[in-house]
Amino acid sequence: MKKETFDQHLEEATEQLRTNGGADDLGGFERGVWAEIALHDERWTTRVVQFFREGIPTLPMPAVAGSVAIAVAAGVLTGLFQAKAYGESVSESMEAQYVSSIHPVLRSESEDHRHDSSSD
């Protein structure tokens, strides 16, 4: 059943039910309407899935291409930034290695107290 037809039937059924009174003596038409209502799942999970299937807007191809380009640029910049931070941390550990080769106290912290012949 199409949504428009369903809405129309729902309104009619609601109106009839208001005039008829009790729900026990429903006719065939009303029973049909209530069967449709019962099939209409109102659980939030189903509604979320339905939203993504039907309710979300679509984007034109230029907007999609632009979004992808922005995502690539953001990924590249973040990658470069993180790599720079990694390079700095490696350089810091090399500095610690250098200082431990020229400061006796730091040198004593390592197991090896000897310098090698290639200036450490």
Binding site: S67, V68, I70, A71, V72, A73, A74, G75, V76, T78, G79, L80, Q82, A83, K84, Y86, G87
Partner: peptide, 16 residues
């Protein structure tokens, strides 16, 4: 966008 962005990040970061 999320997949492409992550691929770009991973590619550049691991290369560098």
């Amino acid at each position: 966008c999320a997949i492409v962005g992550l691929l770009a990040f991973g590619g550049v970061y691991f290369w560098k």
